[in-house]
């Protein structure tokens, strides 16, 4: 029986690429004391890897739950929802009181709020099934704008003088990942990944859509809700670390499908994750070392991702 070796080959190539980029990130242009450089760059690298992995996994999972290759949590407003949850929490307790808390505690509270709120959002968005893709997309996009506007409004109300400080916090850059959250973020992302591994075959079935999934014996409601909790946790981690990024996940997932030419999650998930890591680590290195210009990575990602999104939409419209 002829077996398709392409996914394995693609994964191996991506693995090598990622490893090479990581090595370069750690060593290129390093001057002086290694005892300082390694931990310093290592923390930065860890941040980028966690963000990339969280965004890639949450996107692929979301596309599986919705049986669609265009929808992503960020595009459907989940990222903005996290910002809104965070802002609501600050509004409720006051910014001075919040300053006294451990940031990890605040993050945990945000994540819990986020899980509950995203369940409600998902139920509302998909209450009529996913038949009418464009409307659901448009509603998701506008919901995202609404959340963002509400968050901005609340931030203005909180402290008009410190508004810029607050928005800076929400739009942290890849270069300034909050280090105090790295530990808890790695732990959460690691746990979710471990939880996913035995579920890979079930995810493959889920990607066939609700009717086929139920027919093949999935407890659809429970499974989707469980995956959604995982997505919410991953989104919470990535937004808390770098703020919302609209198109990055879409880019990673689309490229992963192209690269492995398979729909099996055991290929797509690692591929998406490796591609995301390569894009972030490689892009950050390129901007820092070659162009000496390090704030713009997210802008470039949004620019390229937006073009990919429109291309996907147009291609889909043609079919």
């Amino acid at each position: 029986m002829p077996r398709n070796r392409r996914p394995q080959l693609a994964l191996a190539a991506l693995g090598l690429l990622t490893a090479g980029l990581i090595l370069a990130f750690m060593t290129v242009g390093a001057k002086g004391n290694w005892d300082f450089i390694l931990p310093f760059r290592g923390r930065k690298l860890l941040g980028l890897v966690i963000i990339a992995h969280a965004v890639a996994c949450s996107t692929v999972l979301f596309q599986t739950v919705t049986s669609n290759r265009i929808l992503t949590p960020a595009i459907m407003g989940f990222d903005s929802l996290f910002v809104l949850c965070a802002t609501l929490l600050v509004t409720a307790f006051g910014s001075t009181a919040m300053a006294g808390f451990d940031p990890r505690l605040i993050f945990a509270a945000n994540a819990v709020l986020m899980v509950a709120a995203s369940m409600a959002l998902y139920r509302w968005l998909f209450r009529d099934g996913t038949e009418d893709l464009h409307r659901i997309l448009l509603i998701g996009v506008v919901v995202g704008i609404l959340f963002r506007s509400l968050a901005e409004f609340l931030q203005r109300m909180l402290d008009p003088n410190e508004f810029m400080v607050l928005t800076d916090m929400m739009f942290a850059s890849f270069n300034a990942v909050p280090l105090d959250l790295l530990g808890v973020a790695s732990l959460l992302v690691g746990l979710v990944t471990l939880w996913l591994i035995p579920r890979l075959p079930r995810l493959d079935v889920m990607a066939l859509g609700r009717p086929v999934g139920i027919n093949l014996g999935l407890d659809w409601r429970r499974e989707t809700m469980a995956v959604l909790v995982a997505i919410s946790v991953l989104v919470s981690v990535s937004v808390a670390l770098v703020g919302p990024i609209l198109f990055f996940g879409l880019m990673a997932a689309a490229l992963a499908h192209l690269a492995v030419g398979s729909s099996a999650h055991r290929h797509v998930l690692p591929a998406a994750s490796l591609i995301a890591v390569s894009l972030l680590v490689g892009g950050q290195m390129l901007l820092e070392r070659v162009f000496a210009f390090d704030t713009a990575l997210r802008i470039l990602v949004e620019f390229a991702g937006g073009i990919i999104f429109i291309t996907l939409l147009v291609a889909r419209g043609r079919r």
Binding site: D132, H134, R135, L137, L138, V141, L246, I299, L300, E302, F303, G306, I307, F309, I310, L313, V314, G317
Partner: peptide, 17 residues
Amino acid sequence: MLVPLIGIMLSGIIFAG
């Protein structure tokens, strides 16, 4: 529904520029 969707995304791309 597709028309405003494409428009919003195009606006996003130009704004990124």
